[in-house]
Design a protein around this nucleic acid. Structure first.
Length: 510
DNA sequence: ACCCCTTTGAAGTCT
DNA sequence: AGACTTCAAAGGGGT
């Protein structure tokens, strides 16, 4: 696989993973495509490609078109009709653009995309704001499809496209940088130097592909923010200049961590709130995402489709239909985008956002029955005629609990007295402070400091339940298999691990 | 209000 | 190491 050697062998290997992936021609894919296929991307190919694109959503349905057509299929076919209605226009456009270089159809878009770069991405932001940001650009928000992205195709001429500029389809970045520079009236160059962020010219405009979230901060040409050292960034997506960067998305309230403060009021509430206000730094866009962002409006305009899923299918097909050279542009952009992102957020890792979405929905579901579980637990304890004051050792609950490492092990690890030094991480101030403070090898899911405040993450209700302290001395505890007391009414696998006593197996009299 | 869909690529985690 | 998972964008549709 050829590497897309970005700016040459300058030691910049940030894009080392960028590869031109061998893609299957459309004909190789599962859907039935008129023979002739796509290998040669001539006009006929383009047409069939476009038709197939619309077919994409419903192609399988057609093949197996049984008696019952699904709604999805109908929708897809409607889309196809609409799209085919539009097809002549698209072809005409393709013809216009096609000048023999083989990549004509996308040329304008590429430039247009860069035109957009000058205006801050209009997605989700008012057109007025966009126009303001691009005031000097002149082309403004023109005839876009109404969406911010519409401005991409809405602008006719690239901002700095000089008359007669060769339209080879390769983004011309330097002129944009010049344009950008001309607007940096109050951000002096020495700031850049002082802050130690040296942005190569070529990387200047790429990040404009980022969009601000609808709830994001104001609309200011973010490029100015690039002249500010990332470590000085303020919260809410601001740099010290007060200028937002599109990759920084302030939490909108519906975002992460919200789940922690429902019902429970952990001691670290303030900390959580603080954390909730921390802006999310989004991943840099990959090549395909950049391509999508640029071409979406065009496809929407051509196909009169609005469903993003369908649009994305089309874009996916078009992506595969792109020549290597065309794709290379986006790989290169993506590489620079990552590079810039890395410069702006040195400590950031994709890990920071990893699992957030899933976790959020998972915990939401879990949460919904947390209350029930708590209630059920109380009932269980009541059934067992023990109370929290009796400090029953809950070895396990049925589901949703992970083993945090048993207090018993913890005691042993730190040489604590098995008789008296009960480990009580999570809401238990006494004993085993080292474990509480996270020094232990075992993990405590809810470490708390000796004053009871959370060290790391706020304890979930279930976490705290795991550490209901045993009322029994260690010699009364046995392996989990010895005895399980589970009243029929108890919804949990509440296991009390007790050794038989002279009075028989069961709850010891204490 | 919020998740799903749908795409590709990058980067994460898991086995 | 390779397989699998998650998240980036987008916005209509569904619950």
């Amino acid at each position: 696989m050829p590497q897309l050697g970005g700016g040459g062998g300058s030691g910049d290997d940030l894009g080392a993973t960028d590869e031109m992936l061998a893609f299957k021609d459309e004909g190789e894919q599962e859907e039935k495509i008129p023979q002739g296929g796509f290998p040669e991307r001539d006009l006929a190919d383009l047409k069939s490609s476009l038709v197939n694109e619309s077919e994409g959503a419903g192609s399988s349905g057609q093949a197996g078109s049984g008696p019952g057509q699904t709604e999805a299929l109908r929708r897809a076919q409607n889309s196809q009709r609409l799209y085919q209605d539009k097809l002549p226009d698209a072809l005409e456009e393709g013809l216009k653009a096609q000048d023999g270089s083989g990549v004509g159809m996308y040329k304008e878009s590429v430039y247009s995309g860069y035109n957009l770069l000058v205006h801050y991405p209009a997605n989700g932001v008012s057109a007025g704001a966009g126009a303001g940001a691009g005031a000097g650009a002149g082309s403004g928000t023109g005839a876009g499809a109404g969406t911010g992205a519409g401005a991409v195709s809405g602008a006719g001429q690239p901002l700095h496209a000089k008359p007669g500029q060769p339209s080879h389809g390769v983004p011309q970045i330097t002129p944009l940088y010049e344009h950008f520079s001309s607007h940096q009236t109050h951000v002096s160059a020495d700031i850049n130097q002082k802050q130690g962020v040296h942005r190569p010219l070529q990387t200047t405009d790429i990040s404009s592909f980022y969009s601000l979230s609808p709830g994001g901060v104001g609309q200011i040409s973010h490029t100015m923010g690039w002249f500010t050292h990332p470590s000085l960034m303020l919260g809410s997506g601001m740099h010290t200049t007060g200028i937002p960067h599109p990759a920084i998305v302030p939490h909108s309230g519906k975002q992460e961590l919200q789940h922690y403060d429902r019902g429970l009021k952990p001691p670290s509430e303030a900390k959580q709130e603080k954390e909730a206000k921390k802006p999310t730094i989004k991943k840099p866009l990959n090549a395909f995402m950049l391509y999508m962002k640029e071409m979406r409006a065009k496809v929407i305009a051509e196909c009169t489709l609005k469903e993003s899923a369908a649009i994305n299918q089309i874009l996916g097909r078009r992506w595969h239909a792109l020549s290597r050279e065309e794709q290379a542009k986006y790989y290169e952009l993506a590489r620079k985008e990552r590079q810039l992102h890395m410069q702006l957020y040195p400590g950031w890792s994709a890990r920071d956002n990893y699992g957030k979405k899933k976790r959020r929905s998972r915990e939401k579901h879990q949460e919904s029955n947390t209350g029930e579980k708590l209630k059920g637990l109380e009932e269980c304890l009541s059934t067992l005629q023990v109370t929290r004051e009796n400090e029953v050792f809950l070895e396990s609950l049925e589901e949703g609990l992970q083993d945090p490492g048993s207090p018993k092990k913890c005691r042993a690890r730190f040489g604590l007295n098995q008789q008296t030094d009960w480990c009580g991480p999570c809401r238990r101030k006494k004993k085993c402070i080292r474990y509480l403070q996270g020094e232990g090898e075992g993990r405590c899911t809810s470490p708390v400091s000796s004053d009871g405040s959370a060290i790391d993450s706020p304890p979930s209700p279930l976490d705290s339940l795991q550490y209901i302290r045993p009322a029994f001395t260690p010699d009364q505890l046995t392996s989990p298999t010895d005895f399980t007391h589970r009243p029929p009414s108890c919804p949990f696998s509440l296991s009390l691990h007790l050794k038989p006593t002279p009075h028989g197996v069961g709850l010891p009299a204490r």
